[in-house]
């Protein structure tokens, strides 16, 4: 009778303790390396997608998949959510590569929104060869980091 009554409670407590212990092993969810490893390749894919939507062939240089991200000023540690992240990416112009700066908002969930300079990457919407309005993938794009 006693063991019957306490067993579920004991199981519950053990489960909660195990959960807390294993969760404690995790470190910071959002880091500079994780962010630039996601923003870079995603930016390059969006660059390719923009050309595809416009009906153009493109040969996106591999370098486009590398980004350099930082949070806030020099004193701010480059980790954690916030709307003060910036990521430098590469933009091909006449066979050379310029740097572009994306403003990146990272949420606590690990998902981010990167907004690019419209002067270079174009406005929010594009017109495809059939005249339809399509979103400009480079104007702003979303992504998520693995926070597991």
């Amino acid at each position: 009778m006693t063991s019957n009554r306490t067993r579920p409670l004991a199981t519950l407590l053990t489960g909660a303790a195990l959960l807390a212990a294993s969760a404690g092993c995790g470190t910071v969810d959002i880091t500079r390396v994780k962010l630039q490893d996601d923003v870079g390749p995603t930016y390059r894919n969006m660059y390719v997608l923009q050309h595809r939507l416009l009906g153009q062939d493109t040969d996106a240089p591999a370098r486009l998949a590398t980004a350099a991200c930082a949070k806030g000023g020099p004193e701010t540690p480059d980790e954690g959510p916030g709307d003060d992240w910036t990521c430098q990416v590469y933009w091909p112009v006449n066979g050379t590569l310029q740097t572009l700066s994306y403003e990146v908002q990272v949420k606590a969930t690990g998902c981010y929104t990167a907004q690019g300079p419209a002067y270079n990457v174009g406005q929010q919407n594009l017109h495809d060869p059939d005249g339809r309005t399509v979103p400009n993938p480079l104007y702003a794009f979303d992504g998520c980091l693995n926070t597991g």
Binding site: A20, A23, T27, V28, C144, G148
Partner: peptide
């Protein structure tokens, strides 16, 4: 971040890994 992993609302975002070009399943 530890607390966030223990909340019941967090698993509602665990599909993110499925919609990635390189899927990841740890959050799931």
């Amino acid at each position: 971040d530890v607390l966030r992993h223990l909340l019941l609302t967090t698993p509602y975002g665990s599909w993110h890994g499925l919609m990635s070009a390189h899927p990841y399943y740890a959050p799931l």
